[in-house]
Design a protein around this nucleic acid. Sequence first.
DNA 1: TGGAAAACATGACGCTCGGCATGTAAGTTC
DNA 2: GAACTTACATGCCGAGCGTCATGTTTTCCA
Lengths: 205, 205
Amino acid sequence: MTETAHRTQAQRREQTRTALLDATIDCLVDLGYARTSVQEICARAGVSKGAVQHHFTTKAELMAAAVEHLTTKLRRRLAASLDDLPGGGTGVAAAIDLLWTGYSGTLSTAVTELWVAARTDAELRAAIRPVDRALGRATLEHVTQVAGELPPERAEMLFWLTVNLTRGLALDAELGGDPNRRRQLLDEWKRIAVLLYQDATTAPS
Amino acid sequence: MTETAHRTQAQRREQTRTALLDATIDCLVDLGYARTSVQEICARAGVSKGAVQHHFTTKAELMAAAVEHLTTKLRRRLAASLDDLPGGGTGVAAAIDLLWTGYSGTLSTAVTELWVAARTDAELRAAIRPVDRALGRATLEHVTQVAGELPPERAEMLFWLTVNLTRGLALDAELGGDPNRRRQLLDEWKRIAVLLYQDATTAPS
DNA sequence: TGGAAAACATGACGCTCGGCATGTAAGTTC
DNA sequence: GAACTTACATGCCGAGCGTCATGTTTTCCA
Protein backbone atom coordinates (compact mmCIF):
# COMPACT_ATOMS: atom_id res chain seq x y z
CA MET A 1 0.00 0.00 0.00
CA THR A 2 1.57 3.26 -1.10
CA GLU A 3 0.06 5.91 1.09
CA THR A 4 -0.28 9.10 -0.90
CA ALA A 5 -1.07 11.25 2.05
CA HIS A 6 -1.00 14.85 0.92
CA ARG A 7 0.55 16.07 -2.28
CA THR A 8 0.40 19.65 -3.36
CA GLN A 9 -0.76 20.32 -6.90
CA ALA A 10 2.75 21.18 -8.06
CA GLN A 11 4.00 17.92 -6.58
CA ARG A 12 1.33 15.88 -8.32
CA ARG A 13 1.96 17.63 -11.57
CA GLU A 14 5.72 17.21 -11.56
CA GLN A 15 5.44 13.63 -10.41
CA THR A 16 3.26 12.33 -13.21
CA ARG A 17 5.07 14.56 -15.68
CA THR A 18 8.45 12.99 -14.99
CA ALA A 19 6.80 9.58 -14.80
CA LEU A 20 5.46 10.12 -18.31
CA LEU A 21 8.75 11.40 -19.66
CA ASP A 22 10.73 8.56 -18.11
CA ALA A 23 8.24 6.07 -19.51
CA THR A 24 8.63 7.69 -22.91
CA ILE A 25 12.38 7.23 -22.77
CA ASP A 26 11.89 3.63 -21.70
CA CYS A 27 9.66 3.01 -24.68
CA LEU A 28 12.09 4.65 -27.08
CA VAL A 29 14.91 2.48 -25.78
CA ASP A 30 13.27 -0.90 -25.99
CA LEU A 31 10.51 -0.39 -28.52
CA GLY A 32 11.96 2.22 -30.86
CA TYR A 33 10.28 5.39 -32.02
CA ALA A 34 8.02 3.68 -34.54
CA ARG A 35 6.45 1.34 -31.98
CA THR A 36 6.25 3.90 -29.21
CA SER A 37 2.55 4.62 -28.72
CA VAL A 38 0.85 6.89 -26.27
CA GLN A 39 -1.06 3.97 -24.85
CA GLU A 40 2.11 2.07 -24.09
CA ILE A 41 3.69 5.12 -22.51
CA CYS A 42 0.88 5.78 -20.09
CA ALA A 43 0.63 2.08 -19.38
CA ARG A 44 4.25 2.11 -18.21
CA ALA A 45 3.81 5.38 -16.37
CA GLY A 46 0.77 3.99 -14.60
CA VAL A 47 -1.52 6.80 -15.66
CA SER A 48 -4.39 7.11 -18.10
CA LYS A 49 -4.48 8.56 -21.57
CA GLY A 50 -6.38 11.51 -20.19
CA ALA A 51 -3.42 12.44 -18.06
CA VAL A 52 -1.00 12.71 -20.94
CA GLN A 53 -3.69 14.62 -22.77
CA HIS A 54 -3.82 17.06 -19.92
CA HIS A 55 -0.09 17.68 -19.77
CA PHE A 56 0.76 17.46 -23.46
CA THR A 57 -1.91 18.31 -25.96
CA THR A 58 -0.29 16.27 -28.73
CA LYS A 59 2.11 13.38 -29.07
CA ALA A 60 4.74 15.51 -30.77
CA GLU A 61 4.64 17.84 -27.78
CA LEU A 62 5.32 14.92 -25.49
CA MET A 63 8.26 13.85 -27.60
CA ALA A 64 9.66 17.34 -27.60
CA ALA A 65 9.43 17.44 -23.84
CA ALA A 66 11.08 14.02 -23.69
CA VAL A 67 13.98 15.36 -25.71
CA GLU A 68 14.59 18.11 -23.23
CA HIS A 69 14.18 15.79 -20.28
CA LEU A 70 16.63 13.40 -21.90
CA THR A 71 19.22 16.00 -22.79
CA THR A 72 19.08 17.48 -19.34
CA LYS A 73 19.84 14.08 -17.87
CA LEU A 74 22.70 13.45 -20.27
CA ARG A 75 24.10 16.90 -19.64
CA ARG A 76 24.05 16.46 -15.91
CA ARG A 77 25.77 13.11 -16.13
CA LEU A 78 28.47 14.32 -18.48
CA ALA A 79 29.10 17.48 -16.53
CA ALA A 80 29.43 15.59 -13.28
CA SER A 81 32.02 13.17 -14.63
CA LEU A 82 33.91 15.73 -16.67
CA ASP A 83 34.57 17.88 -13.64
CA ASP A 84 37.17 15.63 -12.08
CA LEU A 85 39.46 14.86 -14.98
CA PRO A 86 43.26 14.75 -14.88
CA GLY A 87 45.13 17.09 -17.22
CA GLY A 88 47.68 16.25 -19.91
CA GLY A 89 47.75 13.22 -22.18
CA THR A 90 46.06 10.84 -19.74
CA GLY A 91 43.34 13.44 -19.39
CA VAL A 92 42.67 13.24 -23.11
CA ALA A 93 42.29 9.47 -23.01
CA ALA A 94 40.04 9.68 -19.98
CA ALA A 95 37.92 12.35 -21.63
CA ILE A 96 37.44 10.18 -24.69
CA ASP A 97 36.35 7.30 -22.50
CA LEU A 98 33.89 9.55 -20.79
CA LEU A 99 32.45 10.81 -24.04
CA TRP A 100 32.11 7.23 -25.21
CA THR A 101 30.24 6.06 -22.16
CA GLY A 102 28.16 9.22 -22.28
CA TYR A 103 27.21 8.91 -25.92
CA SER A 104 26.73 5.16 -26.01
CA GLY A 105 24.45 4.46 -23.07
CA THR A 106 20.72 3.95 -23.01
CA LEU A 107 20.11 7.67 -22.81
CA SER A 108 21.96 8.25 -26.03
CA THR A 109 20.12 5.35 -27.63
CA ALA A 110 16.87 7.15 -27.02
CA VAL A 111 18.37 10.34 -28.38
CA THR A 112 19.41 8.56 -31.55
CA GLU A 113 15.88 7.25 -32.02
CA LEU A 114 14.56 10.77 -31.75
CA TRP A 115 17.22 12.13 -34.06
CA VAL A 116 16.48 9.71 -36.84
CA ALA A 117 12.78 10.30 -36.40
CA ALA A 118 13.39 14.03 -36.44
CA ARG A 119 14.97 13.88 -39.87
CA THR A 120 11.57 13.50 -41.46
CA ASP A 121 9.56 15.31 -38.79
CA ALA A 122 10.01 19.06 -38.95
CA GLU A 123 8.23 19.72 -35.67
CA LEU A 124 10.33 17.25 -33.74
CA ARG A 125 13.48 18.52 -35.40
CA ALA A 126 12.68 22.06 -34.40
CA ALA A 127 12.35 20.88 -30.82
CA ILE A 128 15.56 18.87 -30.83
CA ARG A 129 18.02 21.18 -32.52
CA PRO A 130 18.40 23.95 -29.93
CA VAL A 131 18.51 21.50 -27.03
CA ASP A 132 21.13 19.36 -28.72
CA ARG A 133 23.24 22.33 -29.68
CA ALA A 134 23.16 23.51 -26.09
CA LEU A 135 24.33 20.09 -24.94
CA GLY A 136 27.18 20.12 -27.44
CA ARG A 137 28.33 23.59 -26.50
CA ALA A 138 28.15 22.94 -22.79
CA THR A 139 30.13 19.73 -23.08
CA LEU A 140 32.65 21.38 -25.36
CA GLU A 141 33.13 24.14 -22.81
CA HIS A 142 33.83 21.58 -20.13
CA VAL A 143 36.32 19.78 -22.34
CA THR A 144 38.25 22.86 -23.40
CA GLN A 145 38.34 23.95 -19.79
CA VAL A 146 39.88 20.67 -18.74
CA ALA A 147 42.48 20.54 -21.53
CA GLY A 148 43.50 24.16 -21.19
CA GLU A 149 47.05 23.72 -22.46
CA LEU A 150 45.79 22.84 -25.90
CA PRO A 151 44.90 25.68 -28.29
CA PRO A 152 41.11 25.83 -28.17
CA GLU A 153 40.83 25.36 -31.90
CA ARG A 154 42.59 22.02 -31.74
CA ALA A 155 40.66 20.94 -28.68
CA GLU A 156 37.40 21.68 -30.45
CA MET A 157 38.46 19.61 -33.45
CA LEU A 158 39.44 16.71 -31.27
CA PHE A 159 36.19 16.98 -29.36
CA TRP A 160 33.92 16.95 -32.38
CA LEU A 161 35.88 14.20 -34.05
CA THR A 162 35.50 12.13 -30.92
CA VAL A 163 31.80 12.85 -30.63
CA ASN A 164 31.06 11.90 -34.22
CA LEU A 165 33.21 8.81 -34.10
CA THR A 166 31.48 7.82 -30.89
CA ARG A 167 28.07 8.26 -32.46
CA GLY A 168 29.10 6.10 -35.36
CA LEU A 169 30.30 3.45 -32.97
CA ALA A 170 27.09 3.72 -30.98
CA LEU A 171 25.15 3.02 -34.16
CA ASP A 172 27.33 0.01 -34.79
CA ALA A 173 26.66 -1.18 -31.27
CA GLU A 174 22.93 -0.84 -31.73
CA LEU A 175 23.02 -3.14 -34.70
CA GLY A 176 25.00 -5.70 -32.78
CA GLY A 177 28.46 -5.19 -34.21
CA ASP A 178 31.49 -6.80 -32.65
CA PRO A 179 32.18 -5.22 -29.21
CA ASN A 180 35.85 -6.22 -29.35
CA ARG A 181 36.38 -4.32 -32.55
CA ARG A 182 34.73 -1.28 -31.07
CA ARG A 183 37.09 -1.42 -28.12
CA GLN A 184 40.07 -1.73 -30.43
CA LEU A 185 38.92 1.22 -32.49
CA LEU A 186 38.35 3.34 -29.44
CA ASP A 187 41.77 2.44 -28.04
CA GLU A 188 43.37 3.25 -31.35
CA TRP A 189 41.60 6.58 -31.47
CA LYS A 190 42.77 7.37 -27.95
CA ARG A 191 46.35 6.64 -28.99
CA ILE A 192 45.97 8.92 -31.99
CA ALA A 193 44.38 11.69 -29.94
CA VAL A 194 47.08 11.59 -27.29
CA LEU A 195 49.71 11.70 -30.04
CA LEU A 196 48.06 14.69 -31.64
CA TYR A 197 47.70 16.32 -28.27
CA GLN A 198 51.40 16.02 -27.56
CA ASP A 199 52.32 17.29 -31.01
CA ALA A 200 50.11 20.30 -30.57
CA THR A 201 51.35 21.22 -27.10
CA THR A 202 55.06 20.81 -27.85
CA ALA A 203 55.17 22.33 -31.33
CA PRO A 204 51.98 24.20 -32.20
CA SER A 205 51.65 24.83 -35.95
CA MET B 1 1.19 6.16 -73.74
CA THR B 2 3.77 3.57 -72.74
CA GLU B 3 3.34 0.63 -75.01
CA THR B 4 4.04 -2.54 -73.07
CA ALA B 5 4.13 -4.80 -76.06
CA HIS B 6 5.33 -8.18 -74.91
CA ARG B 7 6.99 -8.88 -71.61
CA THR B 8 7.99 -12.33 -70.53
CA GLN B 9 6.89 -13.41 -67.06
CA ALA B 10 10.38 -13.06 -65.67
CA GLN B 11 10.57 -9.55 -67.08
CA ARG B 12 7.26 -8.55 -65.55
CA ARG B 13 8.24 -10.04 -62.24
CA GLU B 14 11.63 -8.38 -62.06
CA GLN B 15 10.27 -5.08 -63.26
CA THR B 16 7.62 -4.60 -60.61
CA ARG B 17 9.91 -6.12 -58.01
CA THR B 18 12.60 -3.52 -58.50
CA ALA B 19 9.94 -0.85 -58.84
CA LEU B 20 8.64 -1.83 -55.41
CA LEU B 21 12.09 -1.96 -53.86
CA ASP B 22 13.10 1.41 -55.31
CA ALA B 23 9.85 2.89 -54.10
CA THR B 24 10.54 1.47 -50.67
CA ILE B 25 13.93 3.16 -50.58
CA ASP B 26 12.34 6.39 -51.73
CA CYS B 27 9.85 6.21 -48.90
CA LEU B 28 12.54 5.47 -46.34
CA VAL B 29 14.53 8.48 -47.49
CA ASP B 30 11.86 11.11 -47.43
CA LEU B 31 9.28 9.67 -45.05
CA GLY B 32 11.37 7.68 -42.59
CA TYR B 33 10.78 4.11 -41.49
CA ALA B 34 7.92 4.94 -39.17
CA ARG B 35 5.83 6.66 -41.82
CA THR B 36 6.66 4.20 -44.58
CA SER B 37 3.43 2.32 -45.30
CA VAL B 38 2.73 -0.37 -47.81
CA GLN B 39 0.07 1.76 -49.41
CA GLU B 40 2.48 4.62 -50.01
CA ILE B 41 5.07 2.25 -51.42
CA CYS B 42 2.80 0.69 -54.01
CA ALA B 43 1.38 4.12 -54.78
CA ARG B 44 4.87 5.31 -55.72
CA ALA B 45 5.65 2.09 -57.53
CA GLY B 46 2.43 2.38 -59.52
CA VAL B 47 1.14 -1.04 -58.55
CA SER B 48 -1.62 -2.29 -56.31
CA LYS B 49 -1.44 -3.71 -52.84
CA GLY B 50 -2.16 -7.11 -54.26
CA ALA B 51 1.08 -7.01 -56.21
CA VAL B 52 3.28 -6.48 -53.18
CA GLN B 53 1.27 -9.18 -51.49
CA HIS B 54 2.11 -11.52 -54.33
CA HIS B 55 5.85 -10.84 -54.21
CA PHE B 56 6.35 -10.38 -50.47
CA THR B 57 3.96 -12.05 -48.10
CA THR B 58 4.64 -9.60 -45.28
CA LYS B 59 5.93 -6.09 -44.85
CA ALA B 60 9.00 -7.25 -42.97
CA GLU B 61 9.88 -9.46 -45.91
CA LEU B 62 9.67 -6.48 -48.22
CA MET B 63 11.96 -4.50 -45.93
CA ALA B 64 14.45 -7.31 -45.81
CA ALA B 65 14.49 -7.45 -49.59
CA ALA B 66 14.91 -3.68 -49.67
CA VAL B 67 17.96 -3.99 -47.46
CA GLU B 68 19.61 -6.35 -49.87
CA HIS B 69 18.63 -4.25 -52.87
CA LEU B 70 20.03 -1.20 -51.12
CA THR B 71 23.28 -2.77 -50.07
CA THR B 72 23.85 -4.19 -53.52
CA LYS B 73 23.49 -0.71 -54.98
CA LEU B 74 25.83 0.82 -52.43
CA ARG B 75 28.33 -1.93 -52.96
CA ARG B 76 28.35 -1.50 -56.70
CA ARG B 77 28.80 2.23 -56.42
CA LEU B 78 31.64 2.00 -53.92
CA ALA B 79 33.41 -0.75 -55.80
CA ALA B 80 33.25 1.19 -59.05
CA SER B 81 34.77 4.33 -57.59
CA LEU B 82 37.31 2.54 -55.43
CA ASP B 83 38.83 0.80 -58.41
CA ASP B 84 40.57 3.84 -59.83
CA LEU B 85 42.33 5.30 -56.80
CA PRO B 86 45.85 6.69 -56.69
CA GLY B 87 48.30 5.11 -54.26
CA GLY B 88 50.26 6.73 -51.45
CA GLY B 89 49.18 9.58 -49.20
CA THR B 90 46.90 11.27 -51.72
CA GLY B 91 45.25 7.92 -52.21
CA VAL B 92 44.34 7.81 -48.52
CA ALA B 93 42.70 11.22 -48.67
CA ALA B 94 40.85 10.29 -51.83
CA ALA B 95 39.68 7.04 -50.28
CA ILE B 96 38.32 8.90 -47.26
CA ASP B 97 36.43 11.25 -49.53
CA LEU B 98 34.99 8.30 -51.36
CA LEU B 99 33.88 6.60 -48.18
CA TRP B 100 32.29 9.84 -47.07
CA THR B 101 30.30 10.33 -50.24
CA GLY B 102 29.41 6.65 -50.20
CA TYR B 103 28.23 6.60 -46.62
CA SER B 104 26.49 9.96 -46.60
CA GLY B 105 24.27 9.87 -49.66
CA THR B 106 20.61 9.07 -49.93
CA LEU B 107 21.31 5.36 -50.10
CA SER B 108 23.05 5.46 -46.77
CA THR B 109 20.25 7.54 -45.32
CA ALA B 110 17.85 4.74 -46.09
CA VAL B 111 20.27 2.24 -44.60
CA THR B 112 20.44 4.25 -41.39
CA GLU B 113 16.67 4.26 -41.14
CA LEU B 114 16.64 0.50 -41.47
CA TRP B 115 19.47 0.11 -38.98
CA VAL B 116 17.79 2.09 -36.28
CA ALA B 117 14.52 0.31 -36.93
CA ALA B 118 16.33 -3.02 -36.82
CA ARG B 119 17.58 -2.37 -33.31
CA THR B 120 14.16 -3.17 -31.91
CA ASP B 121 13.04 -5.52 -34.68
CA ALA B 122 14.70 -8.91 -34.48
CA GLU B 123 13.45 -10.10 -37.85
CA LEU B 124 14.71 -7.02 -39.66
CA ARG B 125 18.00 -7.20 -37.79
CA ALA B 126 18.50 -10.80 -38.81
CA ALA B 127 18.00 -9.75 -42.42
CA ILE B 128 20.34 -6.77 -42.23
CA ARG B 129 23.34 -8.13 -40.38
CA PRO B 130 24.79 -10.59 -42.91
CA VAL B 131 24.23 -8.23 -45.83
CA ASP B 132 25.87 -5.35 -44.01
CA ARG B 133 28.82 -7.44 -42.90
CA ALA B 134 29.34 -8.54 -46.47
CA LEU B 135 29.34 -4.92 -47.60
CA GLY B 136 31.88 -3.99 -44.95
CA ARG B 137 34.20 -6.86 -45.78
CA ALA B 138 34.01 -6.27 -49.51
CA THR B 139 34.75 -2.58 -49.15
CA LEU B 140 37.57 -3.29 -46.74
CA GLU B 141 39.09 -5.68 -49.21
CA HIS B 142 39.03 -3.02 -51.89
CA VAL B 143 40.63 -0.50 -49.56
CA THR B 144 43.43 -2.73 -48.38
CA GLN B 145 44.09 -3.70 -51.97
CA VAL B 146 44.47 -0.07 -52.96
CA ALA B 147 46.73 0.91 -50.06
CA GLY B 148 48.93 -2.16 -50.27
CA GLU B 149 52.04 -0.55 -48.83
CA LEU B 150 50.38 -0.16 -45.47
CA PRO B 151 50.40 -3.14 -43.10
CA PRO B 152 46.88 -4.60 -43.42
CA GLU B 153 46.27 -4.29 -39.70
CA ARG B 154 46.79 -0.53 -39.81
CA ALA B 155 44.78 -0.18 -43.00
CA GLU B 156 41.88 -2.00 -41.40
CA MET B 157 41.99 0.26 -38.36
CA LEU B 158 42.04 3.37 -40.52
CA PHE B 159 39.19 2.01 -42.60
CA TRP B 160 36.88 1.22 -39.72
CA LEU B 161 37.69 4.47 -37.96
CA THR B 162 36.81 6.33 -41.13
CA VAL B 163 33.60 4.40 -41.63
CA ASN B 164 32.39 4.99 -38.10
CA LEU B 165 33.37 8.64 -38.13
CA THR B 166 31.58 9.01 -41.44
CA ARG B 167 28.44 7.43 -40.07
CA GLY B 168 28.51 9.77 -37.11
CA LEU B 169 28.89 12.70 -39.48
CA ALA B 170 26.06 11.38 -41.63
CA LEU B 171 23.85 11.34 -38.56
CA ASP B 172 24.85 14.91 -37.83
CA ALA B 173 24.00 15.84 -41.40
CA GLU B 174 20.57 14.26 -41.11
CA LEU B 175 19.75 16.41 -38.15
CA GLY B 176 20.83 19.52 -40.01
CA GLY B 177 24.18 20.22 -38.37
CA ASP B 178 26.55 22.78 -39.81
CA PRO B 179 27.92 21.55 -43.18
CA ASN B 180 31.01 23.71 -42.85
CA ARG B 181 31.99 22.07 -39.60
CA ARG B 182 31.55 18.66 -41.16
CA ARG B 183 33.87 19.65 -43.96
CA GLN B 184 36.44 20.93 -41.49
CA LEU B 185 36.24 17.74 -39.48
CA LEU B 186 36.59 15.59 -42.55
CA ASP B 187 39.57 17.62 -43.76
CA GLU B 188 41.18 17.37 -40.36
CA TRP B 189 40.63 13.64 -40.32
CA LYS B 190 42.21 13.32 -43.74
CA ARG B 191 45.25 15.22 -42.50
CA ILE B 192 45.49 12.91 -39.52
CA ALA B 193 45.07 9.79 -41.63
CA VAL B 194 47.73 10.85 -44.10
CA LEU B 195 50.06 11.61 -41.20
CA LEU B 196 49.43 8.19 -39.69
CA TYR B 197 49.84 6.60 -43.06
CA GLN B 198 53.25 8.16 -43.55
CA ASP B 199 54.35 7.24 -40.04
CA ALA B 200 53.32 3.65 -40.57
CA THR B 201 54.99 3.26 -43.96
CA THR B 202 58.29 4.92 -43.03
CA ALA B 203 58.71 3.54 -39.53
CA PRO B 204 56.32 0.65 -38.82
CA SER B 205 55.98 -0.02 -35.10
C1' DT C 1 -5.78 -22.87 -79.47
C1' DG C 2 -7.28 -23.77 -75.08
C1' DG C 3 -6.43 -24.56 -70.36
C1' DA C 4 -3.16 -24.00 -66.53
C1' DA C 5 -0.53 -20.91 -63.99
C1' DA C 6 1.56 -16.82 -62.85
C1' DA C 7 1.05 -11.71 -62.27
C1' DC C 8 -1.65 -8.37 -60.78
C1' DA C 9 -6.23 -5.60 -59.24
C1' DT C 10 -10.11 -4.84 -56.03
C1' DG C 11 -12.46 -4.70 -52.02
C1' DA C 12 -13.21 -5.83 -47.34
C1' DC C 13 -11.83 -7.14 -42.45
C1' DG C 14 -9.80 -6.68 -37.90
C1' DC C 15 -6.88 -4.06 -35.36
C1' DT C 16 -4.49 -0.20 -33.27
C1' DC C 17 -3.52 4.35 -33.21
C1' DG C 18 -4.01 9.40 -31.69
C1' DG C 19 -7.32 12.76 -30.32
C1' DC C 20 -11.50 14.32 -28.05
C1' DA C 21 -15.69 14.71 -25.03
C1' DT C 22 -17.22 13.93 -20.80
C1' DG C 23 -17.18 12.54 -15.98
C1' DT C 24 -14.85 12.29 -11.28
C1' DA C 25 -11.53 13.11 -7.57
C1' DA C 26 -8.15 16.04 -5.34
C1' DG C 27 -6.35 20.44 -4.02
C1' DT C 28 -6.77 25.61 -3.55
C1' DT C 29 -9.00 29.91 -2.16
C1' DC C 30 -12.03 32.83 0.10
C1' DG D 1 -17.03 24.61 3.99
C1' DA D 2 -18.50 25.99 -0.49
C1' DA D 3 -17.20 27.61 -4.99
C1' DC D 4 -13.58 26.97 -8.18
C1' DT D 5 -9.62 25.34 -10.46
C1' DT D 6 -6.49 21.78 -11.46
C1' DA D 7 -5.30 16.84 -12.10
C1' DC D 8 -6.63 12.71 -13.74
C1' DA D 9 -9.95 8.58 -15.51
C1' DT D 10 -13.17 6.46 -18.94
C1' DG D 11 -15.12 5.69 -23.18
C1' DC D 12 -15.67 6.60 -27.84
C1' DC D 13 -14.61 7.98 -32.76
C1' DG D 14 -12.58 8.38 -37.34
C1' DA D 15 -8.52 7.22 -39.77
C1' DG D 16 -4.93 4.49 -41.31
C1' DC D 17 -2.56 0.37 -41.04
C1' DG D 18 -1.29 -4.65 -42.64
C1' DT D 19 -3.39 -8.70 -44.23
C1' DC D 20 -6.51 -11.79 -46.64
C1' DA D 21 -10.19 -13.52 -50.02
C1' DT D 22 -11.58 -13.20 -54.32
C1' DG D 23 -11.83 -11.55 -59.18
C1' DT D 24 -9.31 -10.24 -63.66
C1' DT D 25 -5.64 -10.01 -66.97
C1' DT D 26 -1.42 -11.71 -69.07
C1' DT D 27 1.90 -15.14 -70.30
C1' DC D 28 3.17 -19.91 -70.89
C1' DC D 29 2.99 -24.65 -72.62
C1' DA D 30 1.24 -28.77 -74.70
